[in-house]
Design a binder for these strands. Sequence first.
RNA 1: GCCGCAGUAGCUCAGCUGGCUAGAGCGUACGACUGUUAAUCGUAAGGUCAUCGGUUCGAAUCCGCUCUGCGGCGCCA
Length: 438
Amino acid sequence: MDEEPISIQEAKDPGYQGAEVRLRGWIYRTRGSNKMLFMVIRDSTGIIQCVASRSDLGDDLFTVAKDLPVESSVIVIGNVNKDDRAPGGYEVHMNDVRTISKADRFPITKDQSEEFLRENRHLWIRSRKMNAILKVRSTVTGAIHEFFRKKGYHEFTPPIFTPNQAEGGSTLFEVKYYDRSIYLTQTWQLYAEAAIFSLEKIYDVSPTFRAERSKTSRHLSEFWMAEMEAAWIGYREAVQIAMDEIRFIIKKVLENNIGDLEILEVDPDGLVHILEKEWPVITYTEALGILNDKAGMDVQWGKDLRTVEEEELMKLFDTPVGVVEYPKEAMAFYKPVLEGADAPGPVAKCFDILAPEGYGEIVGGSERDTDIESLSMALEKEGESVESYDWYLDLRRYGSVQHSGYGLGVERLIAWICKLENIKDAIPFPRTMTRAYP
RNA sequence: GCCGCAGUAGCUCAGCUGGCUAGAGCGUACGACUGUUAAUCGUAAGGUCAUCGGUUCGAAUCCGCUCUGCGGCGCCA
């Protein structure tokens, strides 16, 4: 009588058709008359319609079940069958409904604004949309681990509290640290550079904090970055690794999340198509030429590409594009100059990967400068105290080697794969300049 | 840092050439209904129109400050 509960997804398996099953879940919708009750329930795997007539359950139980509000938790026992009349094509004829917890009136109803859903994120996370996104997210982070481990990389976990900046001073979160201040990490990079002299090939997926005053649909104050750092490789190899990584992630999403993409109304064929194509790698200087020729934009050499320029450029491509060798001037202190480059000015051994359809930069990376003199000069130029980076400069004093690394913005990648309008939906509890609740 | 948009029932909105005793749909409560597809029908409850101040005989409506949220630029992943 008390059979083991199964998931809603399992109940749709041919082996269970006609059988009595026990399902656990939450009420997603209810409809009915005084003789019939339709109760759609959901669990982590999906939704299924459950139906009963008054005579099936008896007057008392029918009345109790009919009064259960949306999001009440229940155990349903009944016979599952294919039924074309049911949404989703399967239906459970209920023999029993057990109330685990009767819900209060659920605040989220048919009409929802973005703001209201963010205010109620702790409840909205139950929605089919968020459920699907979070499953894709789990696939993405899992795929990152799998990709690097298969290639012989070690997972390396950096500190989150850091005394130094690495990406420009104005974007650090300063926090109390006993009787002084410290910062939340903006990147694992300086520590990763130390670690490669032990592990050679490392990666991580970890939170990153940037206090940029950006109020856009592409920015978060707390986001997850998947980074890699490896000894003995140059920036051009790093570009290829990053592209392989993204391809691998997309492949895994296609293997595991077709149903979720469907809920998100994303056509998987688009992703398949992207996997089939070559992804171009162009230089910054070439990018300016393309912008001039095909978009009529006259961008002054030496400036970083701005959002409009990236958007115009990516209108010309339907796959991710690697852009390499940006002007040294616009780049962070640790990016070395490429000698003998075919460009109007000094360029750095660095790259970005841009996603199509306006999703912008999803990867940024570079080779790392191994020259103490030029590093010290670059730090001074940025107004940093060279002394506080002494430990970092040590890495150049004891057996320095060529090395490169990059960071992939996990939420930006998810937003692109899932075609989300806003990056805030790519993370369960978004943190922005104006929101740290719930 | 700069620019723009918004705040009216639990939710989504209408009302904004000043005349309101502030409406609708959804949700909720009660009732009806034997196959519903975010069912349908009936009845009801539910509001200091974000705050403060100003103009006016009269302000949801016009003006100003503030607060809150959202987006765009810049910067970045």
